[in-house]
Write a protein that binds this DNA or RNA. Structure first.
Lengths: 388, 388
DNA sequence: CCTCAGTCTTACAACGTTGCAACATCTGGT
DNA sequence: ACCAGATGTTGCAACGTTGTAAGACTGAGG
């Protein structure tokens, strides 16, 4: 059933190689021959056999994107952007869901079973630096997220420490006294550790001493974990009046828990997240968050991978820091309500989503503007596509 | 650098074919030979070359999943489940994001460039039945979502008409008088049309005449579209007291718009969605929705694809309807608040998420239970994995 | 008419794997 | 001792493609 070069060649009365040359747009094919062959190709519906081509050339035109969970919004959004960026370079992206399992991460990082892909962009959860280093010689690899110390590989991410400090400073600037953090983990390295460090730095800087009762675990960084951690904290001895959650899902879970306790966000407790996923923009209250420049992350990852694939594999260690900024919305700054009606007035204002510096002062203005043009999200990009 | 069968064979002092037999777990290899060869394989780090294997056998062990947008929660959740279901059968899933573009959908459906994948599960947006039919002979294909009339292909989905009718009946049972629908589209077929039909059927059944002012467009089915449609409707002549949105994102956008108008959900306007994405479970108010059995959908899609791949490709048209049920939460049923504090009392109850029939009556009970054990979601499954 | 360069086309051999059929070696029954 | 069958092992060819080098046409210059 499938048509191959030979079939076309016979039918067009030329050699197999000439057809191949036409398909690959090689020079030294007379234009009338080219036209004739092309006509036959179209007529017979010939399509090149990728495995055979790859066997011969060693290149597949595919790259892998390995993420722990595709159904986590942050990864889903990033994946979408990476697919689009890769497409601009003519590559097809094969998305692999590793579930954070080491063996699957290794498989992806090493280029899938048998060098199926030409390169890999991975966001490793459980791979060690040693494994990454071992695997990455011989296969182009770009790491997404936190840098693994001295893995000798390319790496793209935001400055988690600085970003976490920005988030914390924002809460400090709002005169919150008991600022909690949710998302801590046991490891001494990785996302959790870095964001915790940023939080602690900002606190120290302001002369605040973090209380251990106000540091909650992050679990798997899902909504559920934020919900649980917040509940646990509210049952504890110290009630926080602000929470910095290490990602947006945790924050959304935490907000839900606060509601269940009858607490108002942001009046009783201000909440800040991290990632700027779309859910946060439409939540009520909309979520103040650290917005990594995901477009920049995606573009950089793909570009870096391209370099790795072209140059000698020993292109050395390179690192790109994508910018981030604080987006202030309703969950941290109560809009200026001239009188009563707290929550509803806030809601009516529409989700404020201005690009404010580290200070939350612009938020009220931005809120007013949002109310005017009825934009729910604010401050962030839109995207095409559809559902079903 | 890469080790191949021949290298192993030479090193182990056997023929290439014997090594191949060991790798593929074939019988008729003496156990000591097997052990020796295996040792060499491990020592040399041999890994089979997939393209070559595929060239020879015609099978890659890969299947494609083609969805319009991976960053839409419904697809992301479904993709996760499909990946896990395929894994149980030893297949690797290549996720392709088509953006709803016809050419990319065709490419995926036809098995990617050159039969890279053994089969495809696709959720087509713009492919016509004719194209599907043309492509699907010669390549195993399972369609996800609404059935394309007479495309002669396998198909897996929920009964959209019945489900939409269930949702609408729920609103009718709550004694809502002006029930709106958001998510309509111009096409006479597809998801939008079927859900609209279900809505209309349920209305007619109850002796209600739908008003055209209460039918809103769905656009791309994103939050933004729901936000806009709801705003437009609220600016119109008839203010609805209930809205059935054709997916959850529309519903979340609509709820946000209602808040911005100072309207209370569910007191002033009850809202029902469709898809049961996780966001809806943690939203405030949590979202009443139609929950398709996504596990069943994923499992059925993979199983059906397996049949298509094994049997003759002309396995004929088969169709699987996955079950669905209504999940009643806060956005449609105000919890029994003994006195005042409407919203807050509702929030304190925790998101009710009981599996109720078509009637909303069980919801209050369920809410009480949820408050007890502090489960925010309710009624739905949990999942492993992590963020970063 | 021959040569030579330039342009176009072709045959052949690989890429790494596995199906096939042939061969080799054992075991146990006559 | 011989054979039949079961059990292991092997060489060859093929999957569809492209790089290489060699071949076959052109037309211009000798």
């Amino acid at each position: 059933m499938p048509v191959n070069l030979k079939d076309v060649a016979v039918s067009a009365g030329v050699s197999v190689k000439t057809v191949s040359n036409v398909v690959n747009d090689r020079p030294y094919v007379r234009s009338d021959t080219r036209a004739r062959v092309q006509a036959v190709i179209d007529a017979m519906g010939y399509r090149p056999n990728l495995p055979a081509r790859q066997l011969r050339t060693g290149r597949s035109g595919l790259i892998a994107l390995a993420v722990p969970e595709i159904d986590v919004p942050y990864f889903a959004e990033l994946a979408g952007k990476i697919v689009r960026a890769a497409e601009r370079r003519g590559w097809t992206v094969l998305i692999d869901m590793t579930g954070g399992e080491r063996s699957r991460e290794r498989r992806s990082a090493a280029g899938f079973p048998g060098d199926l892909v030409d390169g890999t962009i991975a966001s490793p959860l459980s791979m060690t630096a040693r494994e990454v280093a071992a695997v990455s010689k011989g296969h182009p690899l770009v790491l997404l997220g936190e840098k693994l110390a001295h893995a000798g590989s390319s790496h793209v991410g935001v400055d988690s420490v600085a970003a976490a400090a920005d988030a914390t400073r924002h809460l400090i600037s709002l005169d919150r006294r008991r600022i909690a953090a949710i998302g801590a983990a046991d490891e001494a390295t990785g996302t959790a550790a870095l964001r915790l460090r940023g939080y602690q730095q900002a606190m120290a800087e302001a002369g605040r001493r973090p209380q251990s009762e106000l540091i909650g675990a992050g679990g798997l960084y899902h909504r559920e974990d934020g919900f649980r951690a917040m509940n646990a904290m509210l049952d504890g001895p110290v009630r926080p009046d602000a929470v910095f959650c290490f990602n947006d899902l945790l924050a959304l879970g935490a907000i839900r828990a606060l509601h269940c306790h009858g607490l108002d966000v942001p009046r009783d407790v201000a909440v800040v997240g991290f990632d700027d996923i779309e859910d946060g923009r439409y939540n009520t209250p909309s979520l103040t968050t650290i917005a990594p420049d995901k477009d920049a992350l995606a573009e950089a990852a793909v570009r870096l991978l391209g370099l790795r694939m072209d140059g000698a594999s020993g292109a050395g260690q390179s690192e790109i820091r994508a910018p981030h900024h604080l987006v202030v919305r309703e969950s941290s700054v109560a809009p200026l309500s001239p009188s009563g009606r707290g929550r509803l007035a806030a809601a009516r204002l529409g989700p404020a989503g201005a690009r404010a510096g580290a200070l939350g002062l612009d938020a009220a203005r931005a809120g007013g503007r949002a109310a005017g043009n009825r934009s729910p999200g604010g401050g962030a990009d839109r995207r095409g596509g559809g559902d079903r």
